[in-house]
Every structure is written in structure tokens, then in C-alpha cells.
Design a protein around this nucleic acid. Structure first.
Length: 266
DNA sequence: AAAACTGACAACCGCTGGTCC
DNA sequence: AGGACCAGCGGTTGTCAGTTT
């Protein structure tokens, strides 16, 4: 493999002592200045001609994942989470393809989100992220909850019921549509709803379940959190000692379904 | 107060496929 | 046809700030 490796390292990369690691502000401004003048592309030329002692790859990555003007910073919104879950269920780890449908988000960012948040849930459920159990839980609980929270959030900010168009108009029956792409849009003037206060403050529980709660929403990012407890070893209970009103978010139907899924596995 | 741990994200690496000469 | 180069993808690792012990 060494043959391969050396054959694809460009001359410029071999000749200069290449810098690695975090980019400095000076490097960023050099890259920005160069791209502003010459445009994107020809990344090895960028590396060579801009004066940066970086590989073309590194320049490209820095620009695409961090410096592009259209890059969106901050939390992944609920709508974006919903799209990621949905699109991943369809395409798997096709991060760049998924990223094409989330304007301003990079494949790297989505990949990181998946690895840190979604895989964490799977781990807490003690199952594989690709297992049927986790996918069922995701489709039957997580996604409907996201939709519900998006609606709740939009109602609280606009006073109007939100309109989520596309395949996910019914929270209780989320199915993966094999054909056209979901045109997910939420008619809210400010669709950035993932912050802590937005999420927790706007949601008003509507019913109290007679069932054990199957999980709860993380306070800071809208991520579903599962926590197995000794007293509820057959299922999943609310984390944080059950003090959160979030437990009442779980309607009977979803919780029943999740418990069925979990019991079926045993 | 400090060490250990954790999570989030930036960056790198290995590899593939396309294009050009 | 085949080698060199390039852009892009997905997996992995490194870094650092925040949290816990």
C-alpha cells in the first residue's frame, strides 16, 4: 500500500513540510483571501499558491466544512434532526447525500451528529444502531416525538398550528416513502427550535400516560434519552429520577409499541 | 483544586472514481 | 491503455471545553 500512498501524494505535498492540526486565524484568512479571488476548486493549487503549508485536501476540507459563507453554525434544529433520521433510514451512511438536503450543513457535521447523538441512544438501549430494535424505536417513537415537538414549538411561537408537509404529516405513522424525497418544511418564521429554552419551555404536556415512560428528551438538544433502571429492567424509564414533566410526552400508543418491541426481543 | 472523564466537533487518513494527457 | 493528478466520500482520530468525581 505504500506504493499507492506515495504515488498519490502530489509533488508539492512531498516537497514542502506540510502543516497539520488546527487552523490558525492567519491561515483561515489566507485561504479565504485566495478563494475569494480565485474561486473554489483546484485545491492542490490553492495549497501551493496561497502560501499555506497545507495539503490540498486540508484546504478543501477547511473551506467546505468551516469557511464557506453559507455554512450554518449552531445546534442542529429539530427539523434537521428529523430529516437526518429520515434520510439516514433511507440511504444509510451516505453523509454527503444527506447533507445535500440540509442547506448549510456539512456531511462532516451530520456524520458527527449521528455518531455522537444517535449512536449514543443505541448504546444506551444496549443495541446496535442498525438493529431492528433501534430502528423500530426510532421510527415509532423518536421521529414522531420530533414531529410533535416541532409542531408544539411552532404553535408556541406563531400561535398557529404548524404545517409539516411531505411524507411525515402524521406523527403516528411514519413510513419511509421509497420514492420522492421528503419535502419537509415547517411554516414558522423562526425554525431554529433546538435550543434548551425553546424546547422545554414551549412544550405543554397534554396527557399523562398510565404506562411507564419509555424515555425522555434530553434537555439541551432535543435528543431522546433512554435510561435502564433496575426496577424497570424490562423496559425503559424516565431518566433524571422521573422529575421531568417530559415523561408525559409519551402517549400510550407509542409507549405500548416500544414496550412490545422490547419484550418481543426477549 | 485537581485529576479523570465525557461529549462535541475539527481534522486527518485511506480509499475510490473521474479526468486529463 | 495507463499513469498522474484531483475531488470527494466515509471512517477514524485528535483536541479541547465542560462536567464529574
Amino acid at each position: 500500500m505504500d506504493v499507492y500512498k506515495t504515488s498519490f501524494i502530489s509533488k508539492s505535498e512531498k516537497e514542502m513540510d506540510v502543516k497539520k492540526g488546527p487552523w490558525t486565524e492567519e491561515e483561515d484568512s489566507m485561504l479565504k483571501a485566495y478563494v475569494n479571488i480565485h474561486g473554489e476548486g483546484r485545491w492542490n493549487s490553492v495549497a501551493r499558491l496561497s502560501g499555506l503549508r497545507r495539503t490540498g485536501k486540508s484546504c478543501r476540507l477547511r473551506w467546505l466544512n468551516y469557511m464557506r459563507p453559507e455554512i450554518k453554525r449552531g445546534n442542529i434544529s429539530l427539523e434537521e434532526q428529523l430529516l437526518i433520521l429520515e434520510l439516514h433510514s433511507r440511504w444509510g451512511n451516505r453523509w454527503s447525500k444527506i447533507a445535500q438536503h440540509l442547506p448549510g450543513r456539512t456531511d462532516n457535521e451530520i456524520k458527527n451528529y449521528w455518531r455522537t447523538r444517535v449512536q449514543k441512544q443505541a448504546k444506551q438501549m444496549k443495541c446496535d444502531v442498525n438493529s431492528k430494535r433501534f430502528k423500530d424505536a426510532m421510527r415509532s417513537v423518536w421521529i414522531p416525538r420530533l414531529i410533535e415537538r416541532i409542531r408544539a414549538s411552532c404553535q408556541s411561537t406563531t400561535g398557529q398550528p404548524s404545517t409539516i408537509t411531505g411524507i411525515m404529516t402524521e406523527s403516528e405513522s411514519v413510513q419511509v416513502d421509497p420514492s420522492p424525497l421528503p419535502e419537509l418544511s415547517v411554516t414558522s418564521p423562526d425554525s431554529h427550535v433546538s435550543s434548551v429554552l425553546d424546547l422545554t419551555d414551549c412544550y405543554k404536556p397534554q396527557s399523562v400516560s398510565n404506562y411507564e415512560a419509555a424515555g425522555t428528551w434530553g434537555g439541551d438538544d432535543g435528543v431522546l434519552e433512554f435510561q435502564e433502571t433496575e426496577e424497570h429492567s424490562n423496559g425503559w424509564s424516565v431518566g433524571g429520577g422521573g422529575e421531568s414533566s417530559m415523561e408525559t410526552m409519551w402517549n400510550e400508543e407509542n409507549i405500548w409499541f416500544l414496550q412490545q418491541q422490547l419484550h418481543d426481543e426477549d
